[in-house]
């Protein structure tokens, strides 16, 4: 399963590490990653891939929602097909 994960929040030390650690625990492979600061807001986009037989989308979403609450970051996860459908011919 492929998904786009976006992380937005107040810039702080270790955001990339925190998110990447969580993804590693969930066995979500990071295929692509980009990160920038927009008006002091940390903004990161990740393309992640994992084995759908090992981890359901709902479980991945719940885990990331929890991480978001713990860290005060806004973390969204959406399946990649949506982006492909809208942006690619």
């Amino acid at each position: 399963m492929k998904a786009i994960i976006t992380v937005v929040g107040q810039d702080q030390v270790g955001i990339v590490a925190t998110v990447a650690t969580k993804l590693a625990t969930l066995k979500i492979n990071i295929v692509d990653i980009s990160q920038t600061l927009m008006a002091h807001n940390f903004t990161m986009m990740l393309s992640g891939e994992w084995d759908a037989t090992q981890l359901s989308f709902a479980a991945a979403k719940t885990a990331l929602d929890q991480l978001g609450q713990q860290t005060g970051l806004t973390i969204h996860i959406q399946r990649q097909e949506l982006f492909d459908a809208i942006q690619k011919l």
Binding site: I4, T6, D32, S34, T36, M45, S47, H76, Q78, L82, F83, D84, I86, Q87
Partner: peptide
């Protein structure tokens, strides 16, 4: 995929 395209899609929703 370009970051711009991803942001645009997220913004639309």
């Amino acid at each position: 995929m370009e970051a711009k395209a991803i942001l645009e899609t997220i913004q639309m929703v």
